[in-house]
Design a protein around this nucleic acid. Structure first.
Lengths: 142, 142
DNA sequence: TCCGTTAATGCAAAAATTTGCGCCAGCAAA
DNA sequence: TTTGCTGGCGCAAATTTTTGCATTAACGGA
């Protein structure tokens, strides 16, 4: 266990059942510095619980994402996840050439977000947004 | 044919082979006002060319997207496409509750884009970005 | 018009993700 | 501790999208 006990107790307090599968997924994502692929979470989870199903991994990850506990990053057509750091929230820029990931503080998106809210009444959910493009190095090569 | 001849001749001039499949996909997307799902493009294309493969549809759509001819919109876990309107470019906001789509002129994203470029040397490709969130009506209901 | 090059297709399979359903187990209350 | 409710899980299948490979056909040049 590495510092996600608060998340666990908060979830339990909200009435969610904390199954071994969920604890395992949470533990795996929390342990990792940086993002993990869904398949990778599955493989690691199976070391502890050999019977755990991939569908459960996906369902758990989507659930945690919806609750703001984890953040989704799309890297080359695959979903990755990392612990949402509420003390240091950030978005991601992913280079489509090298799949490199850079982070971005949300204030870069703040004005944009506010305008959508004010002018359209649309509440964007930008927590899990991934900005695609080309990074500095890859652009230099071309 | 409905006004995408210029795209066709431009593509041909660039050395791409304009196969019946490609013309068909282009025709289907151009005819439609608004977005089409990949599966829908396939079904329509098969009316003309019964043997056309779904993989070809996907490949063609990705190809056109890369060339800026069509724009991708992600609606509820499915890819949709529409003709890129260079006279009136826009992005999309999709409500995760009702799957409704609203459009957005790119100047809403312009400042954000410039900052990424200037401060990180990262060239974002925002042409095909889909902003998820909740629309006015759905928020009112909740 | 015919030919050669090679890009694009069809086909089949894989990869990635989601969903329906019946059973099981987490957890609160007795 | 036992029980009951029901949310969550495993399983299997479906969906959606991508990929490898052999064959085909677009199109410029002879």
């Amino acid at each position: 266990m590495s510092g996600h006990e608060s998340a666990v107790s908060r979830l339990r307090a909200q009435g969610y059942r904390m199954t071994p599968q969920r604890l395992s997924v949470l533990d795996i994502v929390a342990r990792r510095t940086g993002h993990v692929g869904a398949d990778e979470v599955w493989n690691l989870a199976r070391e502890e619980h050999p019977y755990v199903d991939l569908a459960t991994i996906y369902r758990t990850l989507q659930w945690l994402k919806g609750l703001g506990v984890v953040t989704e990053v799309i890297i080359g057509n695959k979903l990755h996840f990392e612990m949402a750091d509420h003390h240091n929230p950030h978005n991601h820029m992913v280079c489509s050439v090298c799949d490199g990931v850079q982070t971005l503080t949300p204030d870069y998106l703040a004005e944009f977000s506010q305008r959508l809210e004010q002018e359209f009444g649309f509440s964007p959910n930008l927590d899990n947004i991934t900005i695609g493009g080309m990074c500095n190095q890859c652009r230099a090569v071309t």
